[in-house]
Amino acid sequence: MNAIWLFFLLAGIGVAAAGGDVQKVTDGALKGAEMAVEVALGLIGVMALWLGMMRIAQEAGLVDLLGRLVRPLTTRLFPSIPPDHPALGHIIMNLSANVLGLGSAATPFGMKAMQGMQDLNQHRSVASEAMCTFLALNTSCITLVPATIVSVRVAAGSVNPTEIVGPTILATMTGMTVAVTADWLIRTYFRRRGRKVC
């Protein structure tokens, strides 16, 4: 991450300097900083709403129930999380929200899942094995109904706005399979070398 971050910044400054328009660096930086706060503050309401709902679901036993239903799958994907840990329920809720296209709910559920995994993490500032697997799944995750893009297509007058659902699902599954496989390979490699960071 350090290298990529440095690359973004230095490449930007370098290109601006070479092009003679260094003002763009300042503009880009200020715009980015402002947007960061906007995004974070914009999340407060939605986050509070879903975290509230989630607490009810948890106290009603729904999260645990969901966790138990998918246990055969999650114990294989997340061997480092104890099978009855609530984080597994949260992971499943996050992924289901993604699949259903509930972007606003997915983020708070995901934060909860990360908290659960952080409780098990031995190195507070370093990503654990389970976190890496979770994010490999999450960033490549399937959305059954890409609602936003379908509405863009409707607005543009498409004859068949939902025809892209098929290729979208196929392409996502390919990406997800590769991500999970890569994650598994890297994890196994680190374990063999005895550098188990989680």
Partner: peptide
């Protein structure tokens, strides 16, 4: 809690985009 992380990331991406890099 997200703010410092978001500032770091969005400033880098902002500069990367705006400058034409």
């Amino acid at each position: 809690k997200l703010i410092p992380y978001l500032v770091a990331m969005l400033v880098a991406i902002g500069i990367f985009r705006e400058t034409g890099a």
